[in-house]
C-alpha cells in the first residue's frame, strides 16, 4: 500500500516535470521558457524525491536534504540565467505587456 502511495506521488512529480518540458517547447521567448523549464523542477522534483522517500523510508533523510539543496540552488541559477539573458539584450516576446527594467536602465541593456 505504502509503495503505491509513494509511486503515485512520484508519478505526479514526473508529470509536473513533463509539463515543464512541454512549456519549453510552447512558450514564445527565453524568459517564459525559463519560467517553465526551471519552475517545473521545484514542485516536480520535490514530489518525485519525496515519493521515493516514502517507498524507501531509510533514504528519506537524504532525500529531504536533496530537496533542501534544490530549493536553495534552483532560484539562484534561474535568476542568474534570466539576468544574463536580459543584460545580453535578448528581447521579450511581442506579446509582452511592458518591460520596466528596460525603461529604467536602457543603456545597460544596449551594451550587451
Amino acid at each position: 500500500m505504502i509503495q503505491i502511495i509513494g509511486a503515485v506521488i512520484s508519478l505526479v512529480g514526473s508529470m509536473f516535470i513533463f509539463l515543464g518540458a512541454l512549456g519549453v517547447v510552447r512558450m514564445p521567448d527565453v524568459y517564459n521558457r525559463m519560467q517553465a523549464g526551471t519552475k517545473a523542477t521545484t514542485l516536480g522534483s520535490m514530489l518525485t524525491l519525496i515519493g521515493i522517500g516514502i517507498v524507501l523510508p531509510g533514504w528519506l533523510g537524504k532525500l529531504l536534504l536533496l530537496v533542501v539543496f534544490i530549493i536553495i540552488t534552483n532560484p539562484i541559477s534561474s535568476h542568474a540565467l534570466a539576468r544574463a539573458a536580459h543584460h545580453a539584450g535578448i528581447k521579450l516576446t511581442e506579446k509582452s505587456v511592458r518591460d520596466n527594467l528596460k525603461e529604467d536602465y536602457p543603456k545597460e541593456d544596449d551594451n550587451g
Binding site: G23, M27, A40, T42, K95, K102
Partner: peptide, 26 residues
C-alpha cells in the same frame, strides 16, 4: 503558493490558446 501557482501555470500551458500576458514589472 507553490502548489497553487504551479497548477495555474500548468493550466495556461495546456490551454490551446496559451493565455499568457508576460512582461517585467517593478
Amino acid at each position: 503558493e507553490l502548489v497553487h501557482s504551479t497548477i495555474d501555470v500548468a493550466g495556461r500551458l495546456l490551454s490551446p490558446r496559451l493565455p499568457i500576458n508576460p512582461g517585467i514589472v517593478k
